[in-house]
């Protein structure tokens, strides 16, 4: 097997596994940059995966091949709605952000499985008839070498993820909204003095994280698992959290980290069919994202510092 053959298998697969992580990590950035810690990303992905699959199953006859894309919008709406719970608890009711995030995760799994049993009368949904399937990108696929590696047998969602990462970077770094969002996460009192509504900005941050987390879950379910059960989302949300931290709360950094984690995940699955890689015990690939994140936090791989005010409550008039 030549290097070319390996890359042709590996690159699309890496991007396939990375896309959900990218979306969800970007969601995490919105929330954390506004100062609200969001451990609930996992739960938001669960909600997104569930609503996308259910919508897809019930409306495929109506919408046909556009179904997966509309299902993604539904997943975003569901995620945004669900994240309101986290926003209300963590911002208005001054709950500990981490505890509220844990509750989001518990609630999401409980609620979705409850609904699956209510609707389908069994522990899992059926298989969707139309998910995201492999495509060749027109025109670009004909570029020699690169076209074969990057633009054939790949998925639209992978490119959407990269595009969204660039948009999020632009919003966070270059727009007034982004500046306000960041200032609220770094020094809410100073932001308040300048007339920025801290509570409102934080609500925006959390709801955007819900929408993107839901999107991540919807993409994962419709491109990788094709149905919804208790094991559909198992740790991807936390891996996205890791990608966000490993990317140092920066959209493009997180994009890179998510792609790298997607690489590790895809190798741990398809690695046994590739030379060189099958020598490496699976366990190293499985734990790599988590160990690297710990090392990054510790400062061995460039220090990662969270936004200053993350995890704190802003109470007007308190010093």
């Amino acid at each position: 097997m030549s290097l070319m053959d390996i890359l042709i298998i590996l690159v699309p697969s890496t991007l396939l596994w990375a896309a959900p992580l990218v979306f969800t990590a970007l969601g995490g950035i919105f929330s954390e940059r506004s100062g609200v810690v969001n451990i609930g990303l996992e739960g938001l992905m669960v909600i997104g995966a569930f609503s996308a699959i259910v919508f897809n199953l019930f409306t495929f006859d109506t919408f046909g091949s556009a179904t997966p894309w509309i299902a993604l919008l539904i997943a975003m709406a569901a995620g945004a709605l669900f994240s309101m719970l986290h926003a209300v608890a963590a911002i208005t009711f001054r709950a500990d952000h981490t505890v509220s995030g844990v509750a989001i995760n518990l609630l999401a799994t409980g609620l979705t499985l409850f609904l699956v049993k209510l609707i389908f009368d069994k522990g899992e949904t059926g298989i969707i008839s139309k998910g995201f399937s492999k495509i060749d990108i027109p025109i670009l696929k004909d570029i020699p070498v690169i076209g074969k590696i990057f633009f054939q047998n790949t998925y639209w969602t992978s490119f959407l993820a990269i595009l969204v990462a660039i948009i999020v970077w632009f919003i966070v770094a270059k727009t007034p909204f982004g500046l306000r969002l960041r200032s609220v996460g770094e020094h809410p009192m100073a932001a308040d003095t300048m007339g920025i509504n801290v509570t409102k900005m934080r609500y925006y941050g959390v709801i955007l994280s819900g929408a993107l987390g839901g999107l991540g879950g919807g993409v994962y379910a419709q491109s990788i698992t094709s149905n919804f059960s208790h094991s559909t989302i198992s740790g991807q949300g936390f891996m996205a959290l890791a990608a966000m931290i490993f990317g140092k709360w920066h959209p493009l950094g997180s994009l890179g980290a998510a792609i790298f984690f997607g690489f590790a995940q895809s190798i741990s699955i398809i690695g046994s069919s590739l030379p060189f890689l099958k020598e490496i015990p699976n366990v190293y690939l499985l734990i790599a994202p988590y160990v690297l994140t710990i090392l990054a936090l510790t400062g061995f791989i460039g220090r990662a510092d969270a936004p200053k005010a993350s995890g704190t409550h802003y109470i007007k008039g308190n010093r």
Binding site: L85, V88, A89, F93, R94, A95, D96, V99, S100, V102, A103, L106, L107, T109, G110, L111, L113, F114, K117, L118
Partner: peptide
Amino acid sequence: VPNELVDIIIALIVFFVASSYF
């Protein structure tokens, strides 16, 4: 009734304890 209902109740309890401010 699906037994997941209890998981929902436990999650809600965590929510309400965490939001005990109100």
